[in-house]
Every structure is written in structure tokens, then in C-alpha cells.
Amino acid sequence: MSLASTGFLCTFHRCQSLVGRLGVRFISTQSGPLCVQLTSALRAEPLKKKKKTDPVIQKAREEKKIRRLEKAIRKLQKNEGQLKPIEEAEISMKLKQEAKLRERPAAKLPSEELHARRNVELQWARYKHRQVCHESSILAAALHSQHRALQELRRVSESLWLEAIQEDQFALPFRSYGPLSSLPIAGYDGPDGEYVDVSKKWE
């Protein structure tokens, strides 16, 4: 507060003296007040006196700082190739040790079973092939139908046709969702759980 008021006084004082020196040119005829602004320099405080330190101690401090940084750099360089482990992707030690124990005894399959399996795969391939053919024929029919509709529309009215072939500006963004396995339960209130963050912190 005191700083501001001294600042204000200073400027005001200077203005006055300017007016005195340069005559009427600095007298404003505007109805509003001239905004007297404080420059940042005026908000300054006199500098504190620097503490004198022993040059020996100062030098020691700087050296300490440099050593600390060097140590950090060395530490980083040492671990350069190592990546942060991803907890979920790691196979636990327990499983690694028990891998032999957990192996499933390989069952010798009878040739009929093998034959049946091959048959299932063959049938599946045919089934999917038929499905794809069916789908592409549906698409072709839909395209043909649209083509015909547009042709007919052009015959009916050129201007309507011109409108119809415009790009649909609101078609995107388009959102669609797949079917559900069961319906939502009416009035179901989902249980509240407690949120516990178990992720580990790596430095």
C-alpha cells in the first residue's frame, strides 16, 4: 500500500512539474479522469544487501552440486537398456516353475476323431464362404436398387435428382452398437464398490 501510494505521488509530481515546464499542452480537456498508471519499475523494493559468503565454501557447494548431477547421470546411463516391467504381461514365477507340472498329458486321438475334426473345419469353411457370397449378393442388390431409384428420379425431376446426389453432411459421426446377450433388468441398482488403486509406483 505504501509503495503504491509513493508511486502514485511520484508520477503525479512528475506530471505537475511537466505541466509547469511545458505549459498548457499537458492539460487534458477530456471529461473522464486521465488514468495515471504505475509502471512496474515503481513497485520495486530496494535490493537486499547480499550476504557475503566465504569463496571456499561457495566453491565446495558448487562442486557438491556437480557431483550430485554426475551421479544421477551415471545412474541413468547404467539403466539405459532396462524398461519398466509391465505387471500384467509378466508370467509369475510360480507359473514358470509349475509349467512342467501343469502340462496336459497328450491324448492320442483315434483316426475317426481326427477325420471328424477335419470335416468340421471343411464344413465351416464352406459355411463361411456361402455366408460371404450371400452378403455380397445382398450388397450388390442394394446398390442396384439404389442405382435404379436414382435413374428413375432423374427421369422424374432433374432438380430433385441433383438434391438427392448431394453428400449427406450429417451422416457422420455415426454410432452403432451390437446386440446384447440379455436385456437390462428393470430397476437394477448396480452395487457400489470401493476403488482401490493397486498399481505399483515405479521411479
Partner: peptide
């Protein structure tokens, strides 16, 4: 509505 163009006639 999907698209400006008619799909069938």
C-alpha cells in the same frame, strides 16, 4: 434417415 439418395423405387 440414412443418406440423401433414395435406396429403392
Amino acid at each position: 434417415i440414412m443418406g440423401n439418395a433414395p435406396v429403392g423405387f
